[in-house]
Simulated scan of single mutants.
Amino acid sequence: MQKLQAQGVHHITLTGADRQTSIDFWEGVLGMPFIFDQPNLDNPDEGHLYFDPGDGRLITIFTNENRKAVHDRTPTDPGCVHHIAFNVSRATWMQVEDRLNARGITHSGPKDRGFMDSIYFKDPLGLLIELATYKFEPPLGCSHADVMIEAHRTRVARGDHHIAEVHLADAIERLVERRQMTLSDDRGPKNPY
């Protein structure tokens, strides 16, 4: 038996309401370019809109002009989507709360998640959206996941409750030590003062 190895999210498709609500939210609020439009090939009564969330992958929305929002909050039963999180730059993150407030969009306020900062709000159909920004940049040649797994191992070894900045900093240092060679015989910390 062999795995079916995934290599990233190809796209996420959501059931939307009407076309204009979808465009106004995904492009007009979240800034995702509207890049492709065609009928839903499995349902002739629906449209299929495609948006680029910023990494070249896709968020797609099935639309129907007769469908309106029916939830204050989308279902969170087992098997349902709880929320979708999108990455934003630190510069954008610093503006998120003010920009949501300016639009009158109710939100959670900033949440410190140890390794990232987040804010939550609902789309017009009740889907919970998270905007998140990492508190770190991975070393050259490493991914955010590389740092996260190293920080997790450190947190568990120390018996800490959750990942914090100290775990991230130590993880980054270890990844650099493993990946980057040096001419020094001793890489240990020094005090030149």
Results as ranks from 00 to 15, higher is better:
1 M>W: 01
1 M>R: 13
4 L>R: 14
5 Q>M: 15
5 Q>H: 07
6 A>E: 10
7 Q>D: 04
10 H>Q: 08
10 H>A: 11
11 H>Q: 10
12 I>P: 08
17 A>L: 09
17 A>K: 03
17 A>E: 08
19 R>H: 13
21 T>F: 04
25 F>S: 09
25 F>W: 13
27 E>C: 06
32 M>Y: 09
36 F>C: 01
38 Q>V: 07
39 P>D: 07
41 L>S: 11
41 L>Y: 03
41 L>I: 10
42 D>T: 13
44 P>D: 11
45 D>T: 05
46 E>N: 12
46 E>D: 08
48 H>F: 06
48 H>T: 06
51 F>M: 12
53 P>H: 02
54 G>Q: 02
54 G>I: 00
54 G>L: 00
57 R>C: 10
58 L>K: 15
59 I>A: 10
61 I>M: 15
61 I>K: 14
63 T>H: 01
64 N>G: 02
65 E>G: 08
65 E>A: 08
66 N>P: 02
66 N>H: 03
70 V>G: 06
70 V>M: 07
72 D>A: 05
73 R>N: 03
74 T>M: 15
76 T>P: 00
76 T>V: 06
78 P>T: 08
79 G>H: 04
79 G>C: 09
79 G>D: 05
82 H>C: 07
83 H>I: 01
83 H>S: 03
88 V>Y: 04
90 R>C: 13
90 R>T: 15
90 R>H: 12
94 M>I: 02
99 R>E: 15
100 L>K: 04
102 A>M: 04
108 S>H: 09
109 G>D: 05
110 P>G: 12
112 D>Q: 06
112 D>W: 05
113 R>P: 05
115 F>L: 14
115 F>R: 09
117 D>P: 01
121 F>N: 01
122 K>H: 13
122 K>W: 02
122 K>I: 02
128 L>N: 01
128 L>H: 00
129 I>H: 09
130 E>N: 00
130 E>A: 00
131 L>I: 04
132 A>W: 03
135 K>F: 01
137 E>S: 11
143 S>W: 07
144 H>P: 01
144 H>W: 03
145 A>H: 08
145 A>Q: 14
146 D>R: 12
146 D>L: 04
148 M>S: 10
148 M>C: 03
152 H>F: 10
154 T>K: 13
157 A>M: 11
158 R>V: 11
159 G>Y: 06
161 H>M: 07
162 H>R: 14
164 A>P: 00
166 V>I: 11
170 D>M: 12
172 I>E: 12
173 E>Q: 15
173 E>S: 15
174 R>K: 14
175 L>K: 09
176 V>H: 10
180 Q>G: 02
183 L>P: 01
184 S>L: 14
184 S>H: 09
187 R>L: 08
188 G>H: 11
189 P>W: 07
189 P>E: 14
